[in-house]
């Protein structure tokens, strides 16, 4: 491991100056600690609407922590301390008027391991809608079909909607989970290494799906795989040790990084 000394970045340096009107998420001065040591330090970042933004960085750099902060999944853990602010469409997600269940419906999340519920394919997709209630069967059928089609799964499962979701392959399960999340019409979709447990062909399908979905919503992708980040994302943020090192368009970051730390990481000179 080569030790690279680099100037500590001022927060302003790492923001791409998006017009606030085109910003979906604005993260400002976010510091997050599990018990003692902070996992994220003074992080400031803007995520543009209807684009794919990738977070890359070595294991333990805080990229998944950041992602889970965006829909307040950390609320479950009493030991998490958090300061700074996260705004979704201008509204602080920790604000007193924000209902966390509603926030999570607006900011959907897909996890590393496919996690369909032990129910039928149909019930999985309908799960979030049924929680909201007041939807008629016909309408539900339509939304389920639309969600499965959006997730490029409809053709594979349309004849067995009533069979168990656990009988699907890993790649199909992950697309089902995406469909389930899409069904509640989120504004943001968080993807936590969505393809890391899948075979190459399933991975390609997921990546294609991500590219197609950005016309509908904002996507934030955490990945270990830099080729994947390069293939699907529009903007990339490089995190290291809980800090944002560099953030730019994917093209610039991968072809012409400003900092030596970033270059070392993407060229593989660093663990």
């Amino acid at each position: 491991m080569s030790v690279v000394s680099s100037p500590r970045l001022a927060a302003g340096n790492s923001i791409i100056d998006f017009d606030p009107a085109s910003c979906c998420l604005e993260i400002e001065g976010l510091t997050l600690a599990y018990g003692g040591s902070p996992a994220l330090r003074e992080l400031t970042l803007r995520v543009p609407r209807q684009r794919v933004t990738a977070f890359i960085g070595p294991s333990g750099c805080g990229k998944s922590t950041l992602l889970r902060a965006l829909n307040r999944l950390h609320d479950l853990n009493d030991e998490v301390r958090l300061s700074g602010s996260i705004r979704l469409e201008g509204q602080d997600i920790h604000g007193p008027e924000v209902e966390v269940a509603e926030l999570r419906r607006r900011v959907g999340m897909v996890f590393q391991a496919p996690n369909p519920f032990p129910m039928s394919i149909y019930d999985n997709v309908a799960f979030g809608l049924r929680l909201q209630g007041g939807i008629r069967k016909r309408q539900l059928d339509d939304i389920v079909e639309w969600a499965l089609e959006s997730a490029a799964l409809w053709d594979e499962v349309k004849d067995r909607l009533k069979s168990s979701a656990w009988a699907l392959s890993g790649g199909q399960q992950q697309r089902l989970v995406i469909a389930r999340t899409l069904a509640v019409r989120p504004e943001v979709l968080l993807l936590d290494e969505p393809a890391s447990a899948l075979d190459p062909i399933s991975t390609l399908k997921i990546e294609e799906l991500i590219r197609n979905l950005k016309s509908q919503l904002t996507l934030v992708l955490v990945t270990h795989n830099m080729q994947q980040a390069a293939r699907v994302s529009d903007y990339t943020a490089f995190l290291q040790e809980g800090e944002l090192v560099e953030y730019g368009t994917t093209d610039t970051l991968f072809t012409n990084p400003r900092l030596a730390r970033t270059e070392n990481y993407i060229t593989g000179r660093m663990a």
Binding site: A101, E102, R104, G108, F111, F117, T181
Partner: peptide
């Protein structure tokens, strides 16, 4: 598994809904 719980929460389920609809049936 925790990811089942998180999956339900991420869809906008409250803790009670998560328990009654996903965790308890399992």
């Amino acid at each position: 598994p925790d990811h089942q719980r998180e999956g339900a929460l991420a869809l906008g389920a409250t803790r009670v809904e998560m328990l009654t609809r996903v965790v308890l049936p399992m």
